[in-house]
Design a protein around this nucleic acid. Structure first.
Lengths: 230, 230
DNA sequence: AATATTTGTCACGAATATGTCATATTGAAG
DNA sequence: CTTCAATATGACATATTCGTGACAAATATT
């Protein structure tokens, strides 16, 4: 089960390394160079796990962890701290503010992946896999099935991911490039307008269950999934 | 991220020194020799931070801070007080009226910059795009929706940005060229008069929720969003 | 290998937004 | 009450954004 993992690391080389590991393990990597950037990203998508460097420009890793853990919306997101080797003091303080685990730099990919897996498994029951229901639509991530009004809706892989994303981020407007990032992933060699085409395909598919105006276009901004059709 | 910092200091030499520090730190310095002048400047641009001298001719620094903190429009602007060395009494009273930090004169550039940075960082999380509510109007940047009196208000992209700007800078008069700068951005190839037209379009749209006189014209100056219709 | 499905791009018309002008209206000074 | 500049408003040509069908390349399925 692929998870969204947010990497907060200011050193580009290390960030790249971390992201590489994550994607190779079958997950999706979101990157931030600072806590501030991370906060911005999290407004769009809630990650399933955060890899947080101890040393950061601006808000430090420790501060950021404390901020996240004191906010009801984010406190359940597990955090893995990245600390310098052997700094036992940091380790303790990191765990104190609520980090779920820590990894010392330099780290081995094997170790890192093991810990990611462990943390995700620990919280797995509550996480994904739960069917989502929005506006009379039901999407089951495990069976890869979508139903609406007793009708089964057939979707291609891309349309499925697109709808999945819309349903987990309902009511919010997403620009085309945001959608490309979140739904298509790293393959940024795709034109913005391609999104339009897939939106149409998704709309067509949703039409058979009567969900005509579920995906709305916001001119000059992007698209939105919403029940209210005004 | 460059910030607008307002320096309120009556001693020219010190003011110059402060401004120099600020610009060298990559920020933009606005200067005022008194609280009165500062108020005038703030009618045009809202600073991100105010450096406020304790001793001022006319309205004192203490009074000015209290005024700023008791006004809904300005109370969220952080203030750093400049006090004479060792005047612990002033320090306490300064923080009492809502100053976010203080620096004792004579100060080291290093210390000053550190405190500026700290205060700006602390305030960063508040730069969110939460829904804004003004005068019974509600604008949500994430869902791109505007409502007033239970009615949904439909806006074109430009009108949306325009209203967004007005709502985040309510009660203030904006000249046409200021609006072109802030709302239109770089595209300066647009006539001043064009603003009039968009103002009208915005007014039309707001009419359906009964907000007739929300956008007021100030002859010879510009436009203003204000609840009071006088 | 043959066939079906999915995917990205394009072209073109439709829908909508934008900027400018000409003209009407307003407001303030004299 | 005039006069004049500033602003409001309607109309319109232009520009931009979207929706849609077609199509060929890439992938998966048989």
């Amino acid at each position: 089960m692929p998870a969204n993992i947010l990497v907060v690391e200011d050193e580009p080389a290390i960030q790249e390394l971390l992201a590489l590991n994550i994607t190779q393990a079958g997950h999706n990597a979101m990157r931030a160079l600072s806590a501030e950037i991370a906060q911005k990203l999290m407004r769009e998508t809630t990650p399933d796990l955060i890899l947080l460097d101890w040393m950061l420009p601006g808000i430090s890793g420790l501060e950021f962890a404390r901020i996240l853990k004191s906010d009801g919306l984010t406190k359940s997101i597990p955090i893995i701290m990245l600390t310098a080797r052997g700094d036992e003091y940091d380790k303790v303080r990191g765990l104190e503010v609520g980090a779920d685990d820590y990894v010392t730099k330099p780290f081995s990919p094997r170790e890192l992946n093991a810990r990611i897996k462990a943390v995700l498994r620990r919280r797995a029951p509550q996480m994904t896999d739960d069917p989502i229901e929005v506006a009379g639509l039901r999407l089951d991530p495990t069976t890869h099935r979508v139903t609406g009004n007793q009708k089964t809706i057939d979707l291609g892989p891309t349309e499925f991911r697109l709808l999945h994303f819309f349903m987990t981020n309902a009511e919010r407007v997403h620009t085309r490039s945001q959608l490309l990032d979140k739904v298509w992933g790293d393959r940024v060699f795709v034109e913005d307008r391609t999104v339009d085409v897939h939106i149409r395909r998704l709309r067509n598919a949703l039409a058979i269950s009567g969900h005509e105006d579920l995906i709305q276009t916001v001119r000059g901004a992007g698209y939105r999934l919403s029940e209210k059709n005004d």
